[in-house]
Design a protein around this nucleic acid. Sequence first.
DNA 1: ATTAATGTTCAGAA
DNA 2: TTTCTGAACATTAA
Length: 296
Amino acid sequence: MPELPEVETMVRGIRPLVEGRQLLSFRRCPCSCRPLTVSPSLRTISSRLRGQTVAAVRRRGKRIVMEFDSGLILAIEPRMTGLMLAADPPDTAHLRLEWTFSEPVDTSPRQPGDDDPRKTSTIWFWDRRGLGTVALYTREEYEAVVESGRLGPDALELTAAAWATRLNRTSRSVKVALLDQKLVAGIGNLYASEILHLAAIAPSRPASSLTKQETARLARSVRRVLEQAIRDEGSTLSDATYRTVLSEPGRYQNRHRVYARAGEPCPRCGPGSEVQRIVQQQRSTFYCPDCQRPPR
DNA sequence: ATTAATGTTCAGAA
DNA sequence: TTTCTGAACATTAA
């Protein structure tokens, strides 16, 4: 369930713990779980990366991209229940991977009262279901993946014009199109419903039927929802799986308009209009049939 | 004991 | 070619 805001929160959380530091070790945690999908093998990745310095930690869609100074790129996909943590894992049974890093190579001046940055750091990948994946690429390999279009442009980097172009060339429903990571990367089942409600667009509308005004409204809603969710450090649902890097719950669930709120009044129309749950492509969609009414 | 939930990828059918 | 369906991965809660 980590989508763009949750993954962005992970990236921001681990960045100060890893950027400009040397990788000291990267290994499996001693959990009894089946090993994660890691390619090439963890041993190979570890021997290629050990001693290298992290140049940058970025995000593309729902994937964490850790770039080393040599140009090697470690791509981490949390998928359903994966988390990057630096503190208090929910349990130790599902801790999967552990990285340790040196003190920062470039020690910047410190203010009195700051934590001493000259110490090592440890981060973990915790994953209850174990569907997450880790893959090492050379820069060229990674660019080839990006250019192949297997991973679309990030949802926060698309212009309104690009949104219109991409949506207009598919006949699928706009909700299903928003979930297509080749069309645009980062939006998942939860934020798709939230975005469409804010934009007042019916989830069943064929994406290609949206007017220019509607695609512009959709593009603005994407930005508003995702940016607020990032400010709130993501959504922690009742299953409480998602946590920030410091193991705190997110706060955006308090702003959910329709997701998992079937039967409640629509936050735009008020009492008298109930949020509905429908199923599209085997996934739940939540929406208000009144303010998200398709044109007849 | 069954079902639903969630993200991604792939095979196969329409 | 595009779209849809179902399965697979693993786990938990209802």
